[in-house]
Write a protein that binds this DNA or RNA. Structure first.
Length: 654
RNA sequence: GGCUCGAUGGUGAAACGGAAAUCAUCUCUGGCUUCUAACCAGAAGUUCCGGGUUCGAGUCCUGGUCGGGCUGCCA
């Protein structure tokens, strides 16, 4: 049940007919941050008093006097400047636990106004290797889809594959000119990947090579400027400082540019086979672009190659999804929308929403200085064109209330323009939301991205996480100390897999998505701290206690166990269990999965306190033992379900 | 230049405008050897700086500083 909404309803009844905007005040009720201030707190009396011109404490008292909530609450208390502190009755908590322990949906109600969501996430480029950057969109999108579904919403997940991009020109060119037939026969995925990387490296090499000298000069110039500045400082100290800073900055920029170029050159010049190819195939970028253009204009040979390559690349992508347990309802890639693009441009032009400017077809938007270009001067369409076609398609076929785009924050402006254009077209009722997220950084704080072709492929990354999990969780000494020496190697591998993959997902989801975050596998699999591993471990402990109880604990039996809340740790734990639904709702309100991870971590920690303070299997009485078993069982269910909604599995022993 | 996002103990993070800023981690001290010690207690802050709004500001507004991103034909 949603305790918060029940509580808000009590206040709504008191406030309506008394104040103008009761909703505004009802929103000021929240779970107490500190248990010393009750279970929930209403912080509305202060601001209400202000608008009424009365004393806050007096107003708080009056509200408390009018509240009728003896059903499940203790008498509210007014504290401090006018806080109303609310505490649930122990009887209510105790009698509600069986619903969590036995109820089909863990006492979570299906929401009343179910909405239809289209969630657009993951969207890898076919034929480009997947890497760490794809994890965030995939994991966040998947978690949102699962949570919204569990709450009773209709969710359509759509993987907007990049299957029509310029990478195909590169692969087609490479395939024609330097494929290894035997390799392609045996391992087509690997061979295509090799071809793609080779062409990409050569493109980088050929474009970087002529720029190196210039970049070196820029570094020298910047260095000289800085030296001059230090030799002849500006008499004005402040101006000098500013000028020096600017000079230092441009020097650093120049150095970074140069290093980037050198890395690209180095990547090829240090590999004799690539160097040879680079010399045999000058202007490979241009040639690749021609192949792409041919493909897009319907050239049959290239189209045949495309049809041959796409399923091969998809195999690799699908195996990653399988490992991560990710499923989509639809996978409409860019190629799916390609035939609709001329129509989109034509329609917008006819409606007067788009017009030609400098050879390109643009949609001008009042809020933006630059237009959204929907057709290039060479006639080619862009990402924005495809996105508009996609909105058309989704609105027509899915009739959604909301479309969520789980895409990194660099595309913020693109989506703002896209949404503005969509509204102009007439899609005004649908919620269009860019669920943006920050960059994944390496341990050094720099973007965890490809520098000179040294990409950490997704598969390797997952392997590494599983391995790290194995060494932490399956450490022989630990297993011996924990009574787990009987685990077979197969079981250990299963545990490491669940823990390793869970660790990556949890780490990603537990960070506020708008911030950048550092990707550190070692940290993620730690058994202490705010990690998925810790929560999985606490789950295993609930199961371990149940297994040792000698009682066949299951949903049906637990429903009849009497619940006692003698210890503070028991009460706090049960309260937390009943707040699961509140946490889920808050989590999807603005699409922040870290709200749910924080809840689960809190629950796990609360269970750890309970574990220390409340003996279960040698409790003072049989009734107390049953009560505590019911609590353990409910905690296990909520942890399992909560992690499950994040796409993370559990194991009974670890 | 314009737009935009960020800055919180040494490190990494959390906090619908609410009370005394919450956790983890490192280091140090002290505890158990009890259903898995993966635990418990103690030691760290001018929430980047200045103004403002508010009964109340890490949170909102404004001006700086620093950093990331975007900025007409990439996605």
């Amino acid at each position: 049940m949603q305790i918060l909404s029940v509580l808000q309803e009590h206040f709504r009844q008191v406030l309506s007919g008394w104040v103008e905007d009761p909703e505004k005040y009802v929103q000021m009720i929240a779970p107490a941050r500190d248990s010393r201030n009750g279970d929930y707190q209403a912080n509305l009396a202060m601001s209400l008093a202000k608008s009424l011109g009365r004393k806050p404490q007096e107003v708080a008292q009056e509200i408390v006097g009018k509240l009728d909530m003896a059903d499940m609450w203790l008498q509210p208390e007014v504290a401090g400047p006018g806080f109303i502190n609310l505490r649930l009755q122990d009887d209510f908590l105790a009698s509600s636990l069986p619903q969590v322990a036995s109820g089909e949906n863990l006492s979570v109600d299906k929401c009343e106004n179910s909405k239809t969501f289209v969630i657009d996430y993951s969207s890898p480029n076919v034929a480009k290797p997947m890497h760490v950057g794809h994890i965030r969109t995939t994991v966040i999108g998947d978690a949102l889809a699962r949570i919204l579904r569990f709450l009773g919403h209709q969710v359509i997940s759509d993987n907007h594959l990049g299957d029509w991009g310029t990478q195909f020109g590169m692969i087609i060119y490479g395939y024609r000119n330097f494929r290894d037939d035997a390799a392609f026969e045996q391992q087509p995925v690997a061979e295509l990947s090799r071809i793609y990387r080779a062409v990409q490296a050569i493109v980088g090499y050929q474009s970087a090579l002529p720029k190196v000298t210039e970049a070196e000069q820029k570094v020298a110039t910047a260095q000289k400027q800085l030296d001059d500045l230090e030799a002849n400082p500006d008499p004005d100290a402040k101006a000098q400082k500013k000028a020096r800073k600017a000079a230092l900055r441009s020097l650093n920029n120049a150095k970074e540019d140069l290093e980037g170029l050198q890395a690209k050159v180095e990547a090829v010049s240090s590999a004799p086979d690539l160097l040879e190819l680079a010399e045999q195939h000058p202007a490979i970028e241009k040639k690749s672009q021609l192949e792409t253009a041919k493909l897009h204009s319907g050239d049959e040979e290239n189209l045949d190659l495309w049809k041959k390559f796409v399923p091969i690349s998809l195999q690799e992508i699908d195996s990653a999804y399988e490992r991560l347990d990710i499923k989509f309802d639809h996978t409409f890639g860019e190629s799916f929308y390609h035939p609709m693009l001329p129509g989109v441009v034509q329609k917008l032009t006819e409606q007067g929403l788009a017009r030609e400017d400098n050879g390109a077809i643009c949609v001008f938007l009042d809020e933006f200085a630059t237009p959204m270009i929907i057709q290039k001067s060479d006639g080619a369409f862009l990402y924005s064109t495809t996105d508009l076609a996609t909105i058309d398609y989704r609105m027509e076929h899915f009739k959604p209330d909301a479309i969520l785009y789980v895409v990194d924050h660099r595309q913020g402006e693109h989506f703002e323009k896209l949404f503005a254009a969509a509204r102009k077209i007439g899609y005004e009722d649908v919620e269009l939301n860019h669920v943006s997220f920050g960059t994944v950084l390496g341990k050094d704080g720099k973007p965890f991205k490809t520098r000179s072709g040294t990409v950490m492929g997704l598969d390797l990354l997952l392997d590494e996480a599983v391995q790290a999990a194995y060494s932490v969780v399956c450490d022989p000494e630990r297993l011996a100390n924990s009574g787990l020496q009987d685990l077979t190697e197969e079981e250990k591998l299963h545990i490491a897999n669940t823990v390793g993959l869970g660790a990556i997902k949890y780490s990603d989801l537990s960070h506020n998505r708008v911030n950048d975050y550092k990707f550190d596998i070692g940290e993620m699999v730690q058994l202490t701290g705010d990690t998925g591993t810790y929560i999985q471990y606490m789950y295993a402990r609930t199961q371990s206690i149940i297994a040792k109880s000698g009682v066949d604990v299951n949903c049906k039996i637990v429903a009849d166990f009497p619940v006692q809340l003698a210890e503070p740790a028991e009460r706090a734990l049960v309260l937390q269990l009943l707040q699961f639904e509140d946490a889920l709702n808050q989590s999807v309100e603005s699409y922040y999965p870290n709200v749910l991870t924080a809840y689960l971590y809190g629950l796990a920690k609360q269970f750890a306190s309970f574990f220390i303070e409340c003996r279960v299997n040698d409790a003072a009485s049989e009734e107390l033992k049953q009560s505590r078993l019911a609590i353990c069982f409910a905690v296990g269910r909520v942890l399992e379900k909560g992690l499950g909604l994040l796409g993370i599995g559990v194991v009974p022993r670890m």
